[in-house]
């Protein structure tokens, strides 16, 4: 009767534990290389094969332990904060100010302040673009902090396009804002799982645009304020945008403060805790 291959059984169990990981084949191949090499070396010292495999597996750790460690690691982020992630924190705080200025600029560019002017509208668009670029840098910092360089590149490209569309067609902010909210929800989730710190204020960036959109719709239905030359209600538009911009500022300050003050000893949280 052939001896059971303990390593094969172990690898099968490990594969099941890690089945949701996209790189499961690579992880299993790497573990297989380790286990076979360790068992071969032990066997070379005179230990029977079955005992060598059993001992090797015991020293390696249970599949469930490894799966937990991998899960923690994939969301555990950078081993340590870097100058770049700290810079992203400073940018977050600066961007919060930029959103507040963009909010004020929306009122200034609207017909609530003076008849429509292309110049004022362009300045508002430029400020919004600056705030969006700042937000994008923060997003990149958070993804980098979480060790998701792969996502970071895609986020920067798509986010750059979205920021340009948002700024150029800024009158369509309720639409762009809702798309931004989806990206920001992902960012907050990544930040929370990578740092283990789930500050409630962070969610302000996620609810910012839906809240602004809601305000815009409600005030339009209520027909609040004067009607402009296009038959719209500029007050509804401005209040909606200012609501969104203000909430963005609150959330970004919370996120920025975290990235800025993160200590190495906390972020190099090691797997051996599991």
């Amino acid at each position: 009767m052939p001896e059971p291959d303990l390593i094969d059984s172990y690898l099968g169990e490990l594969r099941r534990s890690l089945r949701t990981r996209p790189d499961v084949d690579d992880v299993v191949a790497e573990v297989q290389d380790h286990l076979r090499e360790a068992a071969d070396r032990l066997q070379a010292t005179g230990v029977p094969r079955l005992e060598a495999e059993r001992s090797t597996i015991e020293r390696f750790g249970q599949p469930a332990l490894l799966a937990t460690a991998f899960t923690l690691t994939s969301t555990g982020g950078l081993a340590m904060p870097t100058t770049l992630t700290r810079a992203a924190g400073a940018v977050a705080v600066a961007t919060a100010c930029c959103w507040l200025i963009a909010g004020a600029a929306h009122w200034w560019a609207s017909e609530l302040f003076a008849p429509f002017s292309t110049d004022r509208y362009a300045i508002f668009g430029a400020l919004t673009f600056a705030a969006l670029v700042g937000t994008l840098v923060v997003l990149a910092g958070v993804l980098l902090r979480a060790g998701r360089k792969d996502l970071m590149v895609a986020a920067l490209v798509l986010g750059g396009v979205l920021a340009a569309l948002f700024a150029f067609f800024s009158w369509m902010w309720p639409v762009w804002g809702l798309i931004v909210a989806v990206a920001l929800a992902g960012m907050v989730r990544v930040l929370h799982t990578s740092t283990g710190d789930r500050a409630t204020a962070d969610w302000a960036v996620v609810i910012a645009w839906p809240a602004g959109f809601g305000m815009f719709v409600v005030l339009n239905i209520m027909e609040v304020g004067p009607v402009d030359e296009w038959g719209d209600f500029p007050a509804a538009n401005t209040v909606g945008f200012v609501t969104a911009a203000s909430l963005m500022a609150v959330g970004l300050v919370s996120i920025g403060r975290r990235l800025l003050t993160e200590q190495t000893v906390v972020t190099s949280r090691s797997l051996v805790e599991v």
């Binding site: 992880v27 790497e30 573990v31 380790h34 360790a38 020293r59 390696f60 750790g61 249970q62 332990l65 490894l66 460690a69 991998f70 923690l72 690691t73 994939s74 081993a79 090691s270 797997l271 051996v272 599991v274």
Partner: peptide, 8 residues
Amino acid sequence: PEGTVYPV
């Protein structure tokens, strides 16, 4: 456990 080095 040796396996915990791989996630690192």
